[in-house]
């Protein structure tokens, strides 16, 4: 069984959106295109803080068929890679479940199989998770309140790349920030397999209190679209991508 490249958008934010479309509905549209939307809500160290503004986090990931998690700043590195891996696993399980339905006829999922058979199916999922190719578009909220969290975000992204590159399958990343200058999002790092060498990429911060999460997600979806279009046009220039 072969899967094509898995696509994910990873949104890292610290509050709720206040401009443009509803991000949850945009996430639903993105999910329709086979791209998973994962969201990480990042909090200050104080434990008293209620994740009130972060309720949206769960909502976006829910309609984006992805995984969400709310974390304190210090735990970010581990969370970023855990969320990415978990989402990868869930997507692959979805794929496997579909196959199972075709084989077994009735609407059955892995969880409905007896434990022994489940183990065998799980080996297949594990294998796929290790060997499939992965593309992650990281979308970082750089509104004013995020300023002191950005160094940690950068560290977490380097760590993500270390984790994902340890797999047998290929991994590619690109990083965008939002809001951008006069546009919803701004590219910081173009598609690359290694984020190890990124340094102070979040240099230009947007001022003001605007957090246009919805429009940013929409734009991110278009970036994925553009890429596949380009791929079709000049597939000779991107042999490594085409192979996937």
């Amino acid at each position: 069984m072969r899967t094509s490249t898995l696509k994910q958008i990873l949104l890292i934010t610290d509050g709720c959106s206040n401009q443009g479309e509803n991000p949850a509905s945009v996430a639903a549209i993105i999910a329709e295109q086979g791209i998973t939307v994962n969201v990480i809500g990042i909090m200050e160290d104080e434990h008293t803080e209620q994740p009130k503004g972060l309720l949206e986090v769960e909502e976006i990931a829910g309609s984006g068929q992805g995984v969400s998690q709310i974390v304190y700043k210090q735990a970010l590195s581990q969370t970023v890679q855990a969320v990415t891996k978990q989402a990868l696993n869930e997507t692959l399980q979805g794929v496997v479940n579909k196959e199972l339905q075709q084989i077994l006829g009735s609407p059955s999922t892995m969880e409905e199989l007896p434990p022994d058979q489940r183990g065998e199916v799980m080996e297949v999922v594990d294998e796929l998770g290790e060997t499939c190719d992965l593309e992650v578009l990281v979308l970082v909220d750089t509104s004013a309140s995020m300023a002191n969290k950005l160094p940690t975000v950068q560290e977490a992204l380097i760590d993500l790349s270390i984790s994902m590159n340890a797999r047998i399958g290929r991994s590619r990343f690109s990083v965008y920030q939002f809001p951008g200058k006069r546009k919803p999002i701004q590219q910081l790092v173009d598609w690359t397999s290694k984020l190890d060498s990124i340094t102070s990429i979040f240099s230009r911060l947007a001022s003001g209190g605007v957090t246009p999460t919805g429009p940013a997600l929409k734009e991110a979806m278009h970036q994925f679209g553009k890429k596949s279009l380009k791929r079709r046009l000049f597939h000779n220039e991107y042999p490594d991508v085409e192979e996937a």
């Binding site: 590195s77 290790e130 984790s163 590159n165 047998i168």
Partner: peptide, 23 residues
Amino acid sequence: GRAIKEYTEFYDRAYWQMGSRKA
């Protein structure tokens, strides 16, 4: 040969920049 499934930062080779996270 695969990627380490679960790890804890303090004990993780890659966290200390002493190698990869490959098993």
